[in-house]
Write a protein that binds this DNA or RNA. Structure first.
Lengths: 227, 227
DNA sequence: GTTGAAAATTTGGTATACCGAATCTTGTTG
DNA sequence: CAACAAGATTCGGTATACCAAATTTTCAAC
């Protein structure tokens, strides 16, 4: 058995179900039912729900079932605002403190993405994209910073994913990543700040777009709610 | 009874005990004993421990008792690094989005601190200081940002407190706060960035100092560990 | 037919009991 | 006397049972 604790495994499962869309925003998560589904008891399920809730993917309501979070445009914009700041700080610190091995690892990821972007499955592509950003956060050698970064990345995962599969902007993403990598190689803090700014500006636009559209859909659905 | 949930109340209690020093770094928190102490069962105590652990005040160890966190100098420095960035972003956003009421509230806090700093109890003084910083984070009108801010503030609470009571730098703190308030009033993002930078630079030095000293003590104590 | 109140059901909150792993004790052996 | 092994104990992990609040449903009265 893995060294991962049971609640964490359940949390991963929940996260994946939410991010992949098996659990839609607004769905309720009754701890009894969910626990029965996975064949575990309520205690670890409860803890798992708290874990994911703290990440922002689940909303806890007093005396009600937790539900899958339904971020509105403002919430997502706020998250991007923080993510931008966190990534810029990561980039700056990485320029100072990244080891050569760190940079090499990031280069490999970038290369891999560049080589396969025409053929790759959107989901795989996307996970590589995520790992690129995480690698930079790790290269800051500031653990709490990396932790916050991964938390906000997770919050935006779903929106980013929806944005990524719709748009045909893969080449743009790769260009941005290449620019970030170049700045890191040169250990040029100013350049990496600008490159990250450009990249996340684009992201911000794409995401706001997707969320706006989705909220429209949800609104429509709510208007005819019968079930 | 308050609308605060039981685990949260327990978490507050734990936090206060840790921050006030009733629970020293390294002390173990056996959930059975702790639960019995407060006359509650293990379930809410367990959840409370997780809450505080996630804030960074408690360290969870696999298959062992959780212990009160013992941050080293690097950990604290990392935290300050993040806090600085978060506060700067808060300040910038507050310059754009704070309402007049927000600013007035911050002014009142500053004023209060200025009026009473010669007579006030260190702990009260300190809580006012905290509320000043929290008020600025809130004035950013970015909720996830404010949440992160409060988390890092909590992590550093103890170190800041130890630093604050030792030093006779209250006048300096007030000068800094006044400068931050002035920049906010002028909605001058550049000025507030600088003012916050100055303030937290000072903090960083003070905190590193205290932690270094404390680690020395703990080291000494560990060398003769008998109990 | 609609409205309101009461009862039943659903659901999260809390307590407790059980289990297995890790640790500490103790006794035996070299 | 030291070292190691086996048993006892401690403690976190998990399951389950009970409780109270909130919602929903149903039945009665207007």
């Amino acid at each position: 058995m893995s060294d991962q604790t049971l609640p964490e495994k359940i949390a991963n499962q929940l996260r994946r179900d939410i991010l992949r869309g098996r659990l839609a925003p607004g769905d309720s998560l009754k701890e009894r039912d969910k626990a029965a589904d996975l064949g575990v008891s309520r205690t670890p399920m409860r803890e798992a729900i708290r874990i994911v809730a703290r990440e922002g993917l689940i909303t806890l309501r007093p005396a009600r079932s937790p539900i899958v979070a339904m971020p509105d445009v403002k919430a997502v914009t706020d998250d991007v605002e923080v993510l931008l700041s966190v990534e810029k700080l990561s980039g700056k610190l990485a320029c100072e403190r990244a080891t050569d091995a760190d940079i090499e690892g990031i280069a490999v990821i970038t290369q891999h993405m560049d080589n396969n972007f025409t053929t790759m499955d959107p989901l795989d592509m996307f996970e590589i994209d995520m790992s690129f950003h995480s690698a930079i956060a790790k290269a800051s050698h500031n653990e709490p910073l990396a932790e916050i970064h991964s938390r906000f990345l997770a919050r935006l995962w779903r929106a980013r994913f929806l944005a990524a599969i719709k748009r045909r902007n893969r080449t743009k993403v790769i260009a941005h990543h290449t620019a970030i990598l170049a700045a890191l190689r040169a250990r040029d803090a100013v350049a990496i700040d600008a490159a990250i700014g450009t990249h996340l500006d684009q992201l911000s636009k794409d995401i706001a777009d997707v969320i706006r559209r989705e909220h429209q859909d949800l609104q429509d659905k709510a208007d005819q709610q019968a079930d």
